[in-house]
Design a protein around this nucleic acid. Structure first.
Lengths: 139, 139
DNA sequence: ATAGCTGCAAATGCTTTGCAAGGCC
DNA sequence: GGCCTTGCAAAGCATTTGCAGCTAT
């Protein structure tokens, strides 16, 4: 079966990072990058794929998320010790994490410059700010 | 068997937060709070207990860490989506996370005020700074 | 043709839970 | 004594892996 659009954007992006543009990867790429920045978990992306009628296994979703991350198309966000989040925005930026719903939202850059209680999203209050400076050995 | 020191510090701390001072909880409290600030995982604390000759099950270590956290004696630190870290320093502060070794270290407050590459621990370079602003609904 | 990918199911690793036995007040 | 705690083993959950079959080039 060969229903891959020969020169779609998704195909070009995948080729550009050295990943073979398979049907599953193209479909997931369209879900991820086709409509602005997104925050997903493996499970949530799998569900979206199901709803969109895309045939993918959960294992492939996991593989694909990691391949995309390694390729620099995605970024991992650690906010919860029981779930892995992935962000289609790979630029340096930070997040609001809604503890009850488990949802993530980008922090607009103006929030960073003047963070005050009144700047928080409506209906929310600050639970905690976590800053983790990740280091690696420079050898 | 009743070898609980009637008025040890550990016992007082536990009573103060409404936890029954059992042998296991007292022993773990001594390991945790007896020698300055610590960062532990359930597994690492369990190992320390074994080395110290303390009889505790891993399940009890998990339970105890959560009870201490709920009681405000410990704080959870999320830096890795596959492990839970606990910090005996419950004050507002941030961490260095050594990606290779999985170790945590407090960031001295002077680092926060002027964070520059030269301020990083020797032999390390910056991998990434993650800031998560955790929100909860104020209802 | 063949190197790489997918899907399933089984395995893993950390964490939680159910329940009987034991310990603290 | 009564309720809370412990410990074990089993269950749970997210994630990873092994391997046979499929697919893009």
């Amino acid at each position: 079966m060969a229903d891959l659009q020969p020169n779609s954007d998704a195909m070009k992006s995948l080729r550009a990072v050295g990943l073979r543009p398979t049907r599953q990867r193209m479909a997931l790429a369209r879900l991820l990058f086709g409509q602005g920045n997104m925050h997903v978990t493996a499970e949530s992306l799998y569900d979206s794929a199901q709803e969109a009628g895309i045939q993918v296994s959960l294992a492939t979703v996991y593989n694909t998320l990691h391949q995309f991350t390694t390729a620099g198309l995605l970024r991992q966000v650690v906010v919860d010790s029981s779930r892995c989040y992935f962000d289609t925005n790979v630029d340096e930026h930070h997040h609001f994490y809604f503890e009850e719903s488990g949802e993530l939202a980008d922090i607009p850059s103006e929030f960073i410059r003047s963070m005050a209680p009144m700047d928080l999203p409506a209906g929310t209050e600050l639970s905690r700010i976590d800053i983790v400076v990740r280091l690696r050995s420079n050898g």
